[in-house]
Design a protein around this nucleic acid. Structure first.
Lengths: 255, 255
DNA sequence: CCTTCTAAG
DNA sequence: CTTACAAGG
């Protein structure tokens, strides 16, 4: 059994102030894919560095910005940072850890909410991502891309689809991109274990008490190779924790 | 009876979050001299604007920086901002309110702790201040300069005089400046009511739990004309409130 | 609304 | 250590 959590912490230091390590102790994942660390490696809180986990980080060059990490009980046999595109790799958005029988990625897609320029770069990231992800499907280990893709796929993944049809994160071209990722062979594991279920979100705006009213978006995914869908036994969004504006998405795989 | 408080709030918005208006309600001063508002007038919290006090402000041009104010139950007959020196007046450091039988100033002297350039400007401020203050002694109303002068006068005004003899705020030239202000005829009213008493401070560094250990500096004063010393009945530093790194210095005058 | 950064104290 | 700002989300 391998329990994997994907968690956009919105600042690992802020999350730790709110009890990140309490969450780790209670959920006890085998692998934790972190996004939006907003810290350099030396700024990661000591309590996290002292956890009984191996650590790998890919931080942004810009201080306090972006950054991904993977914590795991098992030591990875190989770690790789980046996707091979300079501007993306300078932003710390892609990190891979390979284990004896599994490959895990932590992914943080750019947000496009701050304007056209960033939206264009988000689409550029997505365009690079598709062939990058595809090549791992022909490998001999199951692979899962965990992370914040900053896209809701379908109408049931967002609380107000009509109002947001022109909002970055729910644009037709973004939603189609998720469809294409699924068509290449990846599975949205959480959704496949909760087909048709509504009101399941992984992010809530800090404004307007959105989480209290469950007015959220599902933008954090486990995009797994088919073997992993077969292995998936339990998939939960841990919205009882208030460590971030995102909730951890935790899936247990019988591997 | 006129109760006057001098209070460096270290950000009026932060102070209000910690209960500034509760302090006003409990202490119930007639006049409140505020320093380090760190806000423009429209940013002053609504709860403060709604107090049964007349308000006068002299804010810095730079957002979130410096700024002084005077709140009073009685409406001033005249309010004057500044000292007539451009750079000082742009920083919002001097404000006068004249009442029927009293003139009150709120003063915030520059800090010199950030380097030589600011220390030089602090001394320049002090040099302008002396003749400015002197001319109010020949007027026909008692006058008090309340505020944060950013100087400890004597060894008993600071918890560690030896270590700080080369520190801005306790430099010989600064301490001599206070002596000169007293020689021109002003009285350090709080000290005159607590002659020789030790461990009386008005500011504690936020670092190293200084306030818990009462490792402080007395840098906030009522510098009053002689009639006010005669009228002073009770002088307290209200260190039981934790609204700022400074405590209010509150003196009751029989006027 | 929240988390960073930096400047200022 | 704390308050502001500004950028980013």
């Amino acid at each position: 059994m391998v329990k994997i959590s994907s968690f956009n912490v919105n600042g690992i230091r802020a999350a730790q102030r709110k009890g990140f390590t309490d969450w780790v102790a209670q959920t006890d994942p085998d692998i934790i894919c972190l996004q939006e660390l907003r810290a350099l490696e030396h700024q990661v809180p000591k309590k996290i560095k002292k956890l009984p986990y191996h650590e790998a980080y890919h931080t942004a060059e810009k201080k306090g910005y972006s950054g991904v990490g993977i914590l795991s009980k098992e030591k990875p046999v190989r770690v790789e940072a980046g996707i091979g595109v300079d501007w993306i790799d300078e932003e710390g958005r892609v990190l891979m850890a390979e284990y004896s029988d599994l490959i895990v990625f932590s992914i943080y897609a750019p947000s496009g909410t701050t304007g056209d320029e960033r939206q264009d770069l988000k689409m550029e990231f997505l365009d690079h991502f598709l062939p990058f992800a595809q090549k791992y499907l022909s490998g001999d280990k199951p692979v899962v891309f965990c992370g914040d893709f900053n896209i809701c796929h379908t109408s049931i993944d967002i609380h107000n689809p009509k109002q947001n049809k022109n909002t970055s994160g729910f644009l037709p071209e973004e939603r189609e991109w998720v469809t294409r990722l699924l068509e290449t062979g990846y599975e949205d594991v959480y959704r496949r274990l909760h087909e048709g279920e509504t009101d399941l979100y992984s992010w809530w705006s800090y404004r307007a008490a959105s989480k209290d009213r469950n007015k959220g978006w599902r933008i954090d995914y486990h995009m797994g190779s088919p073997e992993l869908l077969d292995a998936a036994e339990d998939a939960v969004i841990e919205m009882e924790w208030d460590l971030s504006d995102h909730a951890p998405v935790t899936i247990t795989y019988s591997l």
